[in-house]
Design a protein around this nucleic acid. Sequence first.
DNA 1: TAATGGTTTAATCATTTGGTTAAACTTGAT
DNA 2: ATCAAGTTTAACCAAATGATTAAACCATTA
Lengths: 200, 200
Amino acid sequence: MESEELSTEEKILKAAMEVFLRDGYDGSRMQDIADVAGINKALLHYYFRSKDKLFEKVFDFKIQSFFPQVDAAFDQEGLFIDKITFFIEAYIHFLRKNPFLPLFVLNTVNNKEKANFIKKIPIGIAHKIIPRYYADLKEGKVRPLDPVQFIMTVMGMCVFPFLAKPIFVSMLKIEDHNFDMIMEARINELKAYVKLILTP
Amino acid sequence: MESEELSTEEKILKAAMEVFLRDGYDGSRMQDIADVAGINKALLHYYFRSKDKLFEKVFDFKIQSFFPQVDAAFDQEGLFIDKITFFIEAYIHFLRKNPFLPLFVLNTVNNKEKANFIKKIPIGIAHKIIPRYYADLKEGKVRPLDPVQFIMTVMGMCVFPFLAKPIFVSMLKIEDHNFDMIMEARINELKAYVKLILTP
DNA sequence: TAATGGTTTAATCATTTGGTTAAACTTGAT
DNA sequence: ATCAAGTTTAACCAAATGATTAAACCATTA
């Protein structure tokens, strides 16, 4: 079970991701990360200098594991609605594999001391998808609405159940694997919603 | 500006709400809370014994400031869609006044050490609104769908912009008061969405 | 084999932090 | 005025925690 082939630096990063995502920045302890990595605590500082620097590396890595996928979804040709439905599927699949990432990112961008981390989040995506909406609108292929509000809505629809998972699991008296099934079923449910909203 | 008329206990609770909601449990310092309250740190322990106990009081208070409103929205007579639109308006107005509450609650319920706090969240609401959906469905007044998925969706649509506010403010290059206006406009936008989704 | 440079470790440090304590202060009743 | 009870304060404590250091270890190379 030991990841013997990883370098010390990789072991640290892997452990830091696990601990930071689970416990948050303030709730994480360097000793915990060292324990999870199975190495001496001093090595964390040897390779990453400080807790802050290590956290930033984790944040960078996680952001870059996510946004290229979103970019891919929006880059491809097709109607606005097709980009959105593609996004929903890709996003929910990503979230099923990375259920703690949303809370991690939201805590970071809402942390006053880490406000500058916001600029690490690529925002080019919005500028790519919104023109596509107006192009379709001009051709009457989509219902008139505020695309910014709509994008907020789609993101919220996808992310929120993962953020509030403990509440829903308790509320619905279900097990983890049930939740997973509900999220898989959610993909088509959300596709139906956006179709109803967007179809003129 | 000093709240001279408040009792010491009330000053502490008020300060604790401000600090815990802004910095989170792990990020908050008892000394910070004392400073905000303008009192000696030992008084925090005199009145609330420990950081844990004080936090629990804050959580209880905040939960009870929110859920009665939701209950009220769902309690009144009317069609499923009317309850939902009423909820959207009440919820967004509440969030505009309590923008940090969602992240606070989500962090708490996702914190392993505070997992038992979940039971403090009233869940009777769901059991009240879902039968109403099926009643309307039987009369053909609402489109067939999974009401659980739909409720998740409505909550996500409302909450997510507040959770991700720093990202959107940066992305859209807007000021705080602009965000507020967008949230006010969002009420009708969301009402339109749910009408499109629910109307058969 | 001996020297060199990078890596790992145990021990240690300084600071922060939640919590305690004993004394001082305030207030209301007698 | 005096006493008693509750309230407030400054000083202090012990544990935790991020960070440093000096020595030990290991592998490569001359």
